[in-house]
Design a protein around this nucleic acid. Structure first.
Lengths: 250, 250
DNA sequence: CGTATTTTTGACGGCGTTCAATGTAAGTGG
DNA sequence: CCACTTACATTGAACGCCGTCAAAAATACG
C-alpha cells in the first residue's frame, strides 16, 4: 500500500460501516448488542487538535478513540508541553483513560479522528458489572504504567538519537499489534517533529537535526507531518530496543 | 524531633512489636488475623542496597516494605541507572508492586529496612478474594501511574533547580500523609545526591551544585546520605508545586 | 585511626537550547 | 488558477546548562 500525499496519511481514513459495532472498539469488543445500546453510543468525527478529555470538565459523556491518533499531555503556562502518552485504536494502552483519570492531564487528537461518544455513567456501570471489560481495563492500566516507566528511563538516560529511535521502535511495535485497527500505511508514524519533541523533552529544532542524521543512515524517511520507518531493525539496534516491557500487550 | 547523626537517620529505626500485625502494613491493614496466618508472614531485616524484587527471579515469596526506603530502578550495562519510583511504608503508591509487576525493573532497598515476607501465591489468592485489598491495590496502581506521569513531566520539561525542588516537594507531601508509618525525622529525605541524580536523569555532580544553591537560599540542609527540608513552602514556590496529582493518596 | 562512602570543587567540552530567518508544502478564498 | 495564509521542516550562529574526568575534602563507621 502506497500513499502519495501527506494529506492522505492524515485525513483519508477508511470509515467503518455506520451502525455502531462494539467489535470495532478495543475496549468494548465482545459486548452484547443489547448492552451496547444502553451506552447510547454514536460515532462522530473530530478534527486534529480537538480536546477529547479535560479533567476540569469531565462531562457526562466519554469519547472512545475509534480511528486516528491522540495524545495525553500537560501544558504549562509558557506554552511548553509534555506529552505523556500516544494513543491509537487497537492499542491496549490507549483504552483505559476514558472513564476515570486520576491525574492532571488532558487528551487531545493529533490527527483527524473518529470517536464513539457514550454515556460516562453507563460505561462505568458496565465496567463494574462486566468482568471482561474490567480485566481489559486492568491490563490496559498495567500497560500504561509499564510504558510510562519506560518513557521515564528513555527521557532520563538516553541521548537524543537513541531516545528518538526508542520511541519510534515502541510505536512501531504497538502498531504491529494493533494493525487491524489502524488505518494508516505500514510503518507510518503520523507525528510532527514538534510532537516528538514534546514527548521526549526536547526542542523541535534538535529533533529535526537528529532525525536528519537518521535519514542519512537510511533508517527513516521524513514527510510533512509524518515519518516512515525504513529500517526498523536498524533503529532497534541503535537504541538496543527490548520490547519485553510491552509484553502485556499481546 | 532532632536527630544528631546520619546513622540515626538511616539506621536507628523504631521496631514495631514482634508479633506480626497486619495493621502495621498499609497493604494488609484490617485483614483478620486468621487470614493473615495463611500468608505465613515473618518479619526480617534487610541492609541498604539489598534487592527485594527481580522480575527474572520472582520467587515464591513477596517482600512487603514495613520500614525504611526502597526504590524501583532499571540499570544499564554501563552502570547508568534510572530510578522510577521511591517507596516507603504508609505510602499508597508503594504497595501494589509486590504481587505482580508488568515491567522490566527491580526493587532495591535504599536504607536498612524491615520487610514482611509472605507467600506470593497466597497473597495473590487473598487479593482476589478480599475486595478491600483489591480496591487498595487498584488505587495504589492509579497513584503509581499518576506519579510516573508527573515524573516524566518533571524530567522532560523542568530545569535542574525546579526539577530537584519538585521531587523534594512530592516526597515531603507523601511523607506527611504516611507519617505514622515512617520512622525518620520530619522532613528528612534519606537519599544520596546520587540517588536523586538517578531519579531525575542527572549526574550527582550537577545535583550537588544545584543543591548547594538551594542551601544558600535557606531552602534545605545537606547531610551525608540525607537532606532536611527547611523551607517546604519556598521549595514549592520555586517549582510551582501543585499536589493535585497526588490527590488519590489521601 | 583507618577506611569507605559521600560531598565538594575545578577545568573543559559538548549536547542541546534559544533566537531568528528561510524554505516549502498544503489549504483557503477570490 | 493565483494570491494569501498557515503549518512544518530546515538552517545557522551564539549561548549555556549540564556532563565528563579527576582529585580533594568531609563525614560516618568499624
Amino acid at each position: 500500500m502506497t500513499l502519495s500525499t501527506d494529506s492522505e496519511l492524515r485525513h483519508d481514513i477508511r470509515r467503518p460501516s455506520d451502525p455502531v459495532q462494539a467489535d470495532a472498539c478495543d475496549l468494548l469488543a465482545g459486548v452484547a448488542p443489547e448492552h451496547l445500546v444502553d451506552l447510547t453510543p454514536r460515532l462522530e468525527s473530530r478534527n486534529a487538535g480537538t480536546e477529547l478529555f479535560n479533567p476540569r470538565e469531565p462531562g457526562d459523556s466519554v469519547q472512545i478513540l475509534m480511528e486516528g491518533w491522540a495524545c495525553r499531555d500537560r501544558t504549562f503556562g509558557d506554552g511548553d508541553r509534555q506529552i505523556t502518552a500516544f494513543m491509537f485504536p487497537g492499542d491496549l494502552a490507549s483504552c483505559w483513560t476514558p472513564i476515570e483519570s486520576p491525574f492532571d492531564h488532558r487528551v487531545r487528537t493529533l490527527t483527524s479522528c473518529r470517536v464513539m461518544v457514550v454515556s460516562r455513567e453507563r460505561l462505568a456501570d458496565l465496567a463494574r458489572r462486566n468482568s471482561v471489560i474490567a480485566t481489559r481495563r486492568r491490563r490496559a492500566m498495567r500497560t500504561d504504567v509499564s510504558i510510562l516507566n519506560d518513557w521515564l528511563v528513555n527521557v532520563g538516560r538516553r541521548k537524543a538519537p537513541e531516545r528518538i529511535a526508542h520511541l519510534l521502535c515502541e510505536l512501531n511495535h504497538r502498531l504491529e499489534i494493533a494493525r487491524p485497527h489502524v488505518y494508516c500505511g505500514d510503518r507510518v508514524i503520523p507525528l510532527t517533529q514538534q510532537d516528538i519533541a514534546d514527548a521526549l523533552g526536547m526542542t523541535s529544532v534538535h529533533v529535526n537535526r537528529v532525525v536528519q542524521k537518521l535519514r542519512a543512515n537510511q533508517l527513516l524517511e521524513i514527510r510533512k507531518g509524518s515519518m516512515i520507518l525504513r529500517d526498523p531493525h536498524g533503529l532497534a539496534r541503535l537504541c538496543a530496543f527490548d520490547s519485553a516491557y510491552l509484553g502485556v500487550l499481546s
